[in-house]
């Protein structure tokens, strides 16, 4: 199911917790699993659950509770735009609209070439740098005004 690299990561996460608390690593393992697969198909969730010795539905509860897990396939680049109030006051909505226009899709949609998926996100804890995006759950982009957005889309190959 998972590459040996991912399995190594699993093992490193499990080691953070007391021996009888393997389930604690579920969030991290699901995140690694998603990184490898691009999203979280049910089989991946079940495999993580089995790896940690927890019921699959308990792992599914976790995967469906936290926003950054993707339970449906999505584009190569997931761009999450913060539109919460502090960002909105500094152009968060505008940035989102600009992105939508450029990509020709709305939120929760994927471009026809399968490259981009747009999501609306809640406060990312970087309101001073508004507007902010997160690409693929990993890299935070600050001050996303139109020129910056153009540059970002350029870089996403």
């Amino acid at each position: 199911m998972f590459s040996s690299e991912t399995l190594d990561k699993f093992a490193r996460e499990v080691a953070k917790y007391p021996a009888d608390q393997k389930q604690s690593a579920v969030m991290a393992c699901l995140a690694h699993a998603q990184e490898e697969k691009g999203w979280l198909p049910a089989e991946a969730i079940e495999a993580v659950a089995n790896y940690l010795g927890m019921p699959p539905i308990a792992a599914y509860e976790v995967a469906s509770f936290y926003n950054m897990y993707d339970l449906k396939p999505l584009g190569k680049y997931k761009i999450t735009v913060c539109t919460n109030l502090p960002c909105a006051l500094s152009g968060g909505y505008h940035a989102g609209e600009y992105l939508q226009q450029k990509l020709g899709i709305g939120y929760n949609e994927t471009t026809a070439d399968g490259k981009f998926t747009l999501k609306e996100g809640e406060c990312m804890g970087a309101c001073g740098d508004a507007p902010v995006f997160i690409v693929n759950n990993r890299s935070m982009c600050s001050h996303m005004h139109p020129e910056q957005i153009d540059k970002l889309l350029e870089e996403c190959k």
Partner: peptide, 8 residues
């Protein structure tokens, strides 16, 4: 140790 959240 560090434990990361995932959007909640």
């Amino acid at each position: 140790f560090a434990h990361h959240g995932y959007g909640a």
